[in-house]
């Protein structure tokens, strides 16, 4: 359904912008219909940039993104694309223009995509969708963003996406700013939507959230994919040292941290080496030009030991 090929995004850095910094470096992945894929990475891994590239909020330096046979990489008119591909961002309070009521995000959709719809029938649709995601329209409509909770605001944005013919949703850290007790309900809504035919790219730094909801997992480190495949396989039979280190560091409620330390080694990765070389306990001169290799069916990892 959506396929990214050799996707890269570079920023100019250094004096006079002569050096290039690759936020996303030659990334390939594919997302099928009715599939939730988690894109897991720490800060600076390029996960948010990938989300923005898909939403065409920024253009790639090279590579392409194809959505249902349509190459959107350099597409001029995006309106039709946005009817089907939508996004929700991390900060619910910054997603709404603070001086307008929250209803405005729905009005905007009508004005831009369905101008022929009458105001009244649109209102009915909005109310229906809001109810379908477990909110009381009377409690949320007509309010200013700061009068609602982060959870309510994020749900309203899900409702907004549902008002369109959304087939693909980019959910960028959408629950990381919410309270633990209300987070899980939003995840459950996403899964229900998937069952109704939606595909989701679930961007997160939290492995347990990714494990809870996704069918496939992509592990990203410094702009490159370290491991990729079925979620169960990645978590239960991880092949990449980076994935293993992440799994080792998650605090769990049932198991204490093992003593293998997650400290940083000082060396830096030379050009062409695996991005994780700087922290990898197994790093040596063979860590050069590593591509994704097959571990088993639907499970790939970029490590020399595979």
């Amino acid at each position: 359904m959506l396929k990214a090929t050799n996707l890269s995004k570079a920023y100019s850095v250094g004096s006079l912008g002569r050096e290039k910094f690759y936020a996303v470096d030659n990334v390939n992945f594919e997302i099928q219909e009715r599939e939730i894929v988690s894109l897991i990475g720490e800060s600076g891994s390029g996960k948010t940039t990938i989300g923005k590239l898909i939403l065409r909020l920024t253009k790639p330096t090279s590579g392409k993104i194809v959505f249902n046979d349509l190459d959107i990489t350099m597409l001029k008119s995006l309106k039709e694309y946005y009817k089907h591909v939508q996004g929700i961002f991390q900060d619910p309070f910054s997603s709404y223009n603070p001086i307008f009521k929250v209803d405005r995000v729905f009005d905007m959709v009508r004005e831009e995509f369905y101008p022929s719809e009458s105001v009244n029938s649109w209102k009915e649709k909005v109310t229906g969708v809001i109810e379908s995601i477990g909110l009381n329209p009377k409690e949320v409509l007509g309010k200013f963003p700061h009068q609602l909770s982060g959870g309510q605001l994020q749900r309203l944005l899900i409702a907004r996406a549902l008002l369109m013919e959304t087939k693909f949703l980019v959910a960028d850290e959408i629950i990381s700013m919410l309270d633990a007790s209300t987070r899980i309900d939003i995840l459950n809504i996403l899964v229900k939507l998937k069952e109704r035919g939606l595909s989701v790219l679930f961007i997160t730094h939290d492995l347990s959230l990714g494990y809870y909801i996704s069918d496939k997992t992509v592990i990203l480190y410094r702009g490159s994919i370290m491991e990729y495949g079925d979620t169960e396989k990645i978590f239960n039979n991880s092949a990449h040292p980076y994935t293993k280190m992440l799994l080792n560091s998650i605090p769990s409620l049932h198991q204490k941290w093992s003593n293998t330390d997650a400290s940083l080694s000082g060396r830096s990765a030379p050009v062409g080496y695996c991005k994780f070389y700087d922290r990898c306990p197994l790093g040596d001169e063979r860590c050069k030009n590593i591509e994704l290799r097959k571990v088993e069916e639907n499970h790939f990892a970029a490590c020399k030991n595979v």
Binding site: L55, L78, Y82, K83, S95, M108
Partner: peptide, 22 residues
């Protein structure tokens, strides 16, 4: 750089409208 500008962009708003309305 605020998200509501991004949200307006993925709502298909033109640059002119975003500047004027957002």
């Amino acid at each position: 750089t605020r998200e509501f500008v991004n949200l307006a962009r993925i709502s298909g708003r033109s640059h002119m409208k975003i500047i004027l309305y957002e």
